[in-house]
């Protein structure tokens, strides 16, 4: 369970100070799905970084199962990320020189999983996202949708408690977007993950059970009617 209390993040550049987040309070229960929406520069990616333990707030606390990610040491924070948090990036962020299988394996390296098991688990994760035939392909040999599927497999291979996605369909066409959203929806339900996604796509945001809108660093929460399995199967309304 996440509990964010009074999270403020300020960036200082020279004499100028920008407040990206202003006293954000937020609770996310285990297994919840939350979509964060907002204008560019509104602070949504910054909030995702705080939740993912990728950055620390200037003020406030970010508790994950009672552990304040803002206070623990760097080594422990790295360990929390490695064990509990899967992240999907807008630009996929795959290592260009590694194959799909090797890219997925990178998520298991910090956990000390032995190579043979690593390879097996990576292959299984790729099969689960429909890329069982593409294990040895380099990112450059795959389409955007396929690359994002590799990134999803990489995020899920370690069986995390939390899945964070930063505009996961931002670089995809509509058809692929729906495929990816359907996949994420299915995996969220299948694995019982806590799923937090940042998007600027209103059609996706409207269908989330909980919607957090962030503008000028301030957060507004909206409870929406949740969708069932298959909600994203080509049915997104525009």
């Amino acid at each position: 369970m996440y509990r964010l209390t009074g999270v403020t993040k300020r960036y200082t550049r020279g004499k100028e100070t920008v407040e990206a987040l202003r006293g954000v309070d937020l609770t996310i229960a285990d297994g919840d799905q939350l979509v964060i929406q907002g204008p560019t520069g509104g602070g949504k990616s910054t909030l995702l970084q705080m939740i993912g333990g990728l950055d620390r707030p200037t003020e406030g606390s970010v508790e994950l199962d009672g552990v304040d990610l803002a206070r623990i040491g760097e080594t422990r924070l790295t360990r929390v990320r490695a064990e509990n948090i899967g992240i999907i990036f807008q630009s996929f962020n795959l290592i260009p020189t590694l194959t799909a299988q090797e890219n997925v394996e990178t998520a298991l390296v910090p956990l000390g999983v032995k190579p043979a098991e690593r390879r097996e688990r990576a292959a299984e994760a790729l099969r689960s996202v429909g890329l069982g035939e593409r294990l040895g392909h380099a990112p450059s040999e795959m389409s955007g949708g396929q690359q994002q599927r590799v990134a999803i497999a990489r995020a899920l291979v370690k069986k995390p408690k939390v899945l964070l996605a930063d505009e996961p369909t931002g670089n995809l066409d509509e058809g692929t977007r729906d495929d990816i959203m359907a996949l994420l929806e299915g995996l969220w339900r299948e694995h019982g993950l806590t799923f937090v996604m940042v998007t600027h796509d209103s059609s996706i945001a409207r269908r989330a059970p909980r919607l957090a809108t962030i503008a000028a660093g301030r957060l507004t929460l909206t409870e929406q009617q949740p969708y069932g399995v298959g909600a994203y199967d080509g049915q997104i309304a525009h």
């Binding site: 993912g52 990728l54 760097e74 080594t75 790295t78 360990r79 990320r81 490695a82 064990e83 948090i85 992240i87 990036f89 630009s91 962020n93 290592i95 990178t106 998520a107 390296v109 910090p110 956990l111 990489r154």
Partner: peptide, 16 residues
């Protein structure tokens, strides 16, 4: 930067 940042985001410690 992005490559190493990604690895760190995945939980790779700095020493690795």
């Amino acid at each position: 930067v992005r490559e190493f940042g990604t690895l760190k985001a995945l939980g790779w410690p700095s020493r690795k």
